[in-house]
Design a protein around this nucleic acid. Structure first.
Lengths: 205, 205
DNA sequence: CCATTCACACAACAAGCGTTACGGTTATGT
DNA sequence: ACATAACCGTAACGCTTGTTGTGTGAATGG
């Protein structure tokens, strides 16, 4: 019975992608039903057919963006500090696609800060990311590629650094081209390297 | 002739402070003329009397916030790494007032990213802050309290770190109380300390 | 003490918003 | 083939928005 065969969920994906494009271009302040519909080459009738309310529409778009970001192909890397580096590189806006995603997340903070529920969602999201990073750091420490120290703190520090770098790169792209972002990330990692001759050498047992 | 004597500029300050309060509470998405007027205990008639348009109103409020932030009393500190630490501590949301200011700036990124002109304003602002930080870092290096290395890069790294920490602290206040923020900042600075026995010891000339 | 002028409340405006109702078209199941 | 139901364009709704115009009261200058 459907005009386009039963891929109801595929249509919702199309709509969400239009939401992403509008958000990346005009932010939450410019996100209207009509703008999304126009971006999709359709009318608001389509939108309300697939989403009850604007809130649902945005929630689905952000949820899908998060899951897609989480499921995207990751940079391959050996264990140790190399894996930490790869995980952090995966966050930075080094490609147009990553730039778009990051733009959306940064923009979403305005709405999130005004709504405790959304703030909690974001907090959970970043806490999970921090935990994953911590595991990689523990492994790198075990291999003696990172100096010893509370891995939770090192993870929180690295995450803060990368997050701030994302913001800088978005607001001042010319000053933070990919090469510079990578350079700064490597500086940060170098500062976490084991001190030569001090504690933190590889364990051997 | 004025009802309240000629402090035209003082009234504009009052209005701007109401804007700050609305922004800190409801973000840019909740910033309306009526909301500002209500916060002020007045009507929109007052607002339009002092500002031609909403754009002017917001611009003045943010401009004033920036100047006030820049002119506020700074943490006293000796020269060297202590001054770097103090400058970075001055940015973090360690007090309710600093939390409010940071909330506003983070929220403003949504609007800024959608407008190249505003993005450029922000870029200039952060570049200036980075330059000031760089000067402090150069001095700390000269005193042998910071390891050698391109001071511009160290400044950019420290600024990114602090900026990201601000975001984390705002979105997840329970996980980042003042003590934890300071702890993480000190971790970052410790990682920049001169390596014992390596290069970077104090010059004596 | 009167004319003037600033300060601001009040009310109205058009435009744009999210949302709802409806109707025509099209593919499917029987 | 026919009934059915999903798809979605069209149009209207009530509401909120930024902005404008008008009017009133208070303070001032001559």
């Amino acid at each position: 019975m459907p005009r386009t065969k039963g891929d109801h969920e595929a249509r919702r994906r199309d709509v969400s992608e239009a939401v992403w494009r509008v958000l990346a271009a005009h932010g939450f302040g410019g996100l209207t039903m009509r703008a999304v519909a126009a971006e999709l080459g359709a009318t608001t009738g389509l939108l309300t057919h697939y989403f009850r309310t604007k809130r649902d529409l945005v929630a689905h778009a952000l949820d899908l963006l998060e899951r897609r970001t989480e499921a995207r192909p990751r940079r391959a890397a050996g264990p140790g500090v190399s894996a930490v580096r790869a995980a952090l590189l995966d966050i930075l806006p080094l490609t147009p696609e990553a730039t778009g995603s990051n733009r959306i997340w940064v923009s979403s903070w305005d709405t999130a800060l005004a709504d405790p529920g959304l703030s909690a969602d974001h907090a959970r999201k970043y806490a999970r990311s921090r935990d994953r990073l911590r595991d990689l750091i523990v492994e790198a420490q075990r291999l003696g590629e990172l100096r010893p120290g509370d891995p939770d703190r090192i993870a929180a520090g690295a995450q803060a650094f990368v997050l701030g770098l994302v913001v800088q790169a978005l607001l001042d792209a010319p000053a933070f081209p990919p090469r510079r972002q990578i350079e700064l990330l490597d500086d940060h990692l170098a500062a976490l390297a084991p001190t030569r001759g001090g504690p933190g050498e590889p364990h051997d047992g």
